[in-house]
Structure formats: structure tokens, C-alpha cells
């Protein structure tokens, strides 16, 4: 086993086809322990397929996957002991009450009666489900069902949790509740693998983001790195003297300038290197600057420019 110890999830050249539909065309994923990794992609990109493979539900056609150093194919049961999964669609028993659903998980994790009870009440409290615990999920709102779903996946105290679009269909407050739950888990040392269509969500939660499109990872990095990948980033300067505006514009090959407003705009990826070059040029020409702002594109820009799809950002 030569997988690096510090990786909670590692996938190498993962491929999967359904018939002649090549869903995954060789993707690599590396998620360090205790971090949040977000897989971002439009409808049909293969997010759920990836989650299904990582959680031992579906075998890959090619490639290798290790979760906590265990192979999902050769050591599936060991992997299952360490993960908690909340799928895209509610995975609760509709005929049992909320509390019974959690008890069911406790029994299946062989926690014993007392521990099952204790954890159930704790989770009901934490997820604000106390009042609903005696009702079946059929009577829950979407947000409550989601919370029960996530609570069920935590019953076994997993080290790695997979959340497939955990906030799709939730209102903003429900979304924030789920976000704070995820943050709390991460503080406790849990590794989180999250898929989402919401850029804001990935931006809020993820340490690293991978953008999946057409069966390939088309970009990967921290939210900041990703934002620097696309055109649209620029540096805005406000100069001190009107007579230097034209000079600055020329020296910096500005994309736009306005002598009345004393502003100059320079296209830039916003990286430190680009910034240093810009500052050097300003020094050379002895241009006095009052204000400098770096505009990096937001993730929406990234997403749209990488996947070339408009509807998926909605």
C-alpha cells in the first residue's frame, strides 16, 4: 500500500461507461484528511456516478480508488466501516419515524441499545428534529428530510462523509443550516466529499474544488486558484495625478483608462507575480497611485467559462 497516509480519498484514472455513454473518462481525485473537497459540475456531468464509485455502490470500469487507504474494490467492507453517505435523493425509511430511522442505523452499526439511544437523542437535538422525531419522514419538509438523512449518515461516526448535492432544493436558511453542520463536522476532523451545482456553496465550504465536465476534471484547485484561471480578472488603479493617466495606460498596456476619473484598468490574473510586475512598472515610471484593487472573477465566471453552459449555473 503505497498511498500517501495523509489522503483520505484517492482515485486514480477512474473510468466508467454506461453502454456507449462514457460518463467518466479517467479522473484523478486526491482529498487530504480533514479537508472539504467539492466536486462541481452541471447536470449529467457524472457527480453521482463518482460518488457511487467512491462509496462502493457501483464498480468502476477502470482505475483505482482508496478511501482511508483501503481499496473500494478489494476491501469494500473496510471502506464501508469508515464512511457515511448521504445520496442525492433522500435515503430514509418512509414508514418508520425519524427516531426509529436513527435507531435502525444504530442497530446496523451494532452500537448497542444504550449508545444507540444516546446518539439518537443527541443527533435529533443537534439537527433540530426533536419535535419531528415521532413522525414519519413522509410528513417532513424537504429540509427536515435532508437533516434526518445527514443525521443518519453520522450515526456510525464516520471518518469520511460523502454528500451528494446536500442542499439542492433547500431554501437559503436550510442551506445555511446544512453548511454549518458541515463546518462543524470538519472542525471535528471529518473529511468531507461534497458535490454541488452551487458555486457559492463550493466557495463557502471547500478547501479544494474540482470542476467535472464531459467526464473529465477540467479544473482543480483552491477556490482562489480557480478564480484566477479565467479571463475577466483585472487590476484597477486610481492615480494621484491626471497627467500620469495616459503614461500609466501605455506603460501597463491597460485595457481601459479614464483621465477624468483618474482610473486605469489592467487585465490580469491577479497572481502575485503579475502584481509584482505591475508594481515594478509603476515604480519605473514613478507613477503615483492612490488606490489599487484586484478583481478576481467569481466562481460563476469560472464555471461558465470552463463548462460553457449557462443553465447549469442557475
Amino acid at each position: 500500500m503505497n498511498t500517501a497516509k495523509s489522503l483520505a480519498i484517492e482515485a486514480r484514472s477512474l473510468t466508467k461507461s454506461y453502454g456507449d455513454n462514457d460518463v467518466l473518462g479517467g479522473i484523478d481525485i486526491a482529498v487530504p484528511e480533514g479537508s472539504v473537497f467539492s466536486l462541481l459540475g452541471p447536470n449529467g456531468a457524472g457527480k453521482t456516478t463518482t460518488v457511487n464509485i467512491l462509496t462502493t455502490l457501483v464498480p468502476a470500469d477502470g482505475g483505482e480508488v482508496f478511501v482511508k487507504g483501503r481499496s473500494v474494490t478489494r476491501d469494500a467492507d473496510e471502506v464501508r466501516k469508515r464512511i457515511g453517505v448521504t445520496g442525492q435523493f433522500a435515503a430514509v425509511d418512509g414508514l418508520l419515524t425519524g427516531r426509529e430511522n436513527l435507531h435502525l442505523m444504530g442497530s446496523l452499526h451494532h452500537l448497542g441499545k444504550a449508545e444507540t439511544r444516546r446518539r439518537t437523542e443527541e443527533l435529533l437535538e443537534r439537527f433540530d428534529l426533536g419535535e419531528a422525531a415521532r413522525r414519519p419522514p413522509a410528513t417532513y419538509s424537504g429540509g427536515m428530510k435532508r437533516r434526518l438523512d445527514i443525521a443518519m449518515c453520522l450515526m456510525g461516526d464516520p471518518q469520511v462523509i460523502f454528500l451528494d448535492e446536500p442542499t439542492t432544493g433547500l431554501d437559503p436558511s436550510g442551506r445555511r443550516t446544512v453548511w454549518s453542520i458541515i463546518r462543524e463536522l470538519v472542525r471535528g476532523g471529518t473529511t468531507v466529499f461534497l458535490t454541488t451545482q452551487y458555486l457559492e456553496e463550493a466557495d463557502e465550504l471547500a478547501d479544494r474544488i474540482a470542476v467535472l465536465d464531459g467526464g473529465k476534471i477540467v479544473a482543480e484547485g483552491t477556490p482562489e486558484q480557480l478564480k484566477r484561471l479565467v479571463p475577466g480578472g483585472h487590476i484597477s488603479l486610481r492615480l494621484h495625478r491626471a497627467d500620469q493617466v495616459a503614461l500609466a495606460a501605455q506603460a501597463l498596456s491597460a485595457s481601459a483608462f479614464d483621465a477624468d476619473q483618474l482610473t486605469v484598468q489592467v487585465a490580469s490574473d491577479g497572481s502575485v507575480r503579475a502584481l509584482r510586475a505591475l508594481l515594478d512598472a509603476l515604480d519605473r515610471e514613478q507613477i503615483e497611485v492612490d488606490e489599487l484593487t484586484v478583481h478576481t472573477p467569481d466562481l460563476d465566471d469560472v464555471f461558465l467559462s470552463l463548462t460553457g453552459r449557462v443553465e447549469s449555473a442557475a
Binding site: 455502490l57 473496510e78 430514509v92
Partner: peptide
């Protein structure tokens, strides 16, 4: 047809 069976299948049972 219920998601819960998929949940069972990701558990060590």
C-alpha cells in the same frame, strides 16, 4: 425503489 436500500449497501452490514 427507496433510497434506503442504497444506504444499506454503503454500510458494513
Amino acid at each position: 425503489t427507496e433510497g434506503i436500500v442504497d444506504r444499506f449497501r454503503t454500510m458494513s452490514i
